[in-house]
Design a binder for these strands. Structure first.
Length: 410
DNA sequence: GGTAAAGCTGCCGAAGCTGC
DNA sequence: GCAGCTTCGGCAGCTTTACC
């Protein structure tokens, strides 16, 4: 069986290979190109099944066997307070939505030194555990969390951390694995065991049949139980960020707001009307990407989804850019903002369109550009839009700005 | 009213590309 | 070869909100 290991950072690929059964397999390592927006020379060379995972956002590593992806890995060293831990959530979801198990490595806490304050641990928002569990419940595919090794458990006083200079993080000393977590840490050895379990199951049953069996395997059951326990023991609730920024309203309020776009020829379609209530993610900020795309994806799984596609939601999921007021008298919404406008969204889309070469004459296309042209013929601008535009328009049933709105009819 | 947590955003660096 | 641009990821300071 032939393995291919797609990586963003080669040293991290080396780290995973050396610590798992992959080291004994026949494999090749390949550089992963993330999107047609940020790497127009090479993205089109990515195989179709990898492109599908990259559609929403690119993970740090994808392992495939005989052209079938078997798991993806995302690693971060950021402090996971507030909505930061959800920043990478869309890429975990993108993997699982393509039936590919995902691993998320994130520190339990990171030392942050602020001005005029002693160094202290910024701790993870435990709601991430609930969000990942909901993903597993819906897709029946593992989406597992492991702590990036830190001094947090052993050095509660941040100032005493031997790795204070690295914000309390424990990195692997092997220079071939530069920037990777400490491989001998118990969290990492458990993760390697789970990866080996996947490799073993897939080799015995094949990738398609094998992945349906994974959730019932003991190392994965145990990890899922640990994640649920962490949610509870760390005081997780359904009120913390990003759920602290949502409102639930009767859908009629939304329809009453959108009526301004209707006329005798056009009426809002059936999708929004099909759900009685609507969840609104309120962001009164300047229009931007991270951390909002990941937070929006997490809200979908935590509150709205009941099935594998956005059509199977209990509630509409919409995003409001601006200061939202719910007008209970007139059963509608009002939005004001000096920070964001619909033009911020539209300008981003237009900027992405500049990456498209579909309007060129054949004589204008260089030979090396032809495969990229041909990819765009098939997929249009699917892969050439910037990440946050792709993620927002995938997850949100509607996006409202004070001066303009976008919505799905079906 | 004070403190801690949550939320927002300006700015920075890395990587990779384009154009001269 | 180099300057400059875009995209992405990330840090941490500032502001707002929540809580006691």
């Amino acid at each position: 069986m032939d393995y291919r290991i797609w990586y963003s950072i080669e040293s991290f690929a080396n780290f995973i290979i050396a610590n798992t059964e992959l080291r004994n397999k026949t494999f090749v390592k390949k550089k992963m190109y993330e999107s047609d927006a940020n790497n127009i020379r090479n993205f089109h060379t990515m195989p179709d099944h990898i492109k599908k995972i990259l559609y929403l956002d690119a993970p740090d590593l994808i392992v495939e066997i005989d052209h079938e992806p078997i798991f993806s890995v995302e690693v971060s060293t950021e402090a996971g307070t507030g909505h930061n831990v959800f920043q990478r959530f869309a890429r975990l979801a993108a993997s699982v939505e393509n039936n590919v198990p995902s691993f998320y490595i994130y520190p339990e806490a990171v030392i942050i030194t602020r001005q005029n304050t002693a160094p202290r641990w910024d701790r993870i928002n435990p709601l991430i555990f609930k969000a990942l569990d909901d993903v597993m419940s819906i897709y029946k595919i593992p989406s597992l969390f492991y702590y990036f090794p830190t001094d947090y458990k052993t050095h509660n006083d941040a100032f005493t951390s031997p790795n204070l200079i690295h914000k309390g993080l424990r990195f692997d000393p092997n220079r071939n694995y530069a920037g990777s977590p400490l491989g001998t840490d118990s969290e990492m050895t458990l993760m390697f065991a789970a990866m080996d379990e996947i490799v073993g199951v897939v080799e015995r049953h094949g990738a398609i049949v094998g992945r349906d069996k994974l959730l019932s395997k003991r190392p994965i059951i145990n990890r899922r139980a640990f994640m649920n326990q962490e949610f509870v023991s760390k005081g997780g609730t359904m009120d913390t960020s990003p759920l602290s920024a949502i409102e639930k309203i009767p859908t009629q309020y939304l329809l009453n707001y959108l009526i301004r776009f209707e006329n005798s020829q056009y009426h809002i379609g059936e999708l929004l009307r099909s759900r009685q209530e609507t969840i609104i993610y309120k962001v009164d900020a300047k229009f931007r990407g991270d951390p909002y795309p990941g937070a929006l994806a997490a809200i979908d799984y935590l509150k709205c989804r009941e099935g594998k596609s956005f059509e199977e939601r209990r509630y509409n999921l919409i995003m409001v850019w601006g200061n939202l007021t719910i007008d209970n008298t007139n059963r509608t919404l009002s939005i004001s903002s000096t920070k964001s406008t619909i033009n911020d969204f539209v300008k981003s889309v237009q900027a992405s369109e500049n990456k498209n070469i579909l309007s060129k004459d054949y004589s204008q296309i260089s030979n090396s550009e032809i495969p990229r042209y041909y990819m765009q013929v098939r997929y249009g601008s699917t892969y050439s839009k910037v990440k946050h535009i792709r993620v927002f328009s995938y997850f949100a049933d509607a996006i409202l700005f004070p001066d303009g709105s976008l919505w799905r009819d079906a």
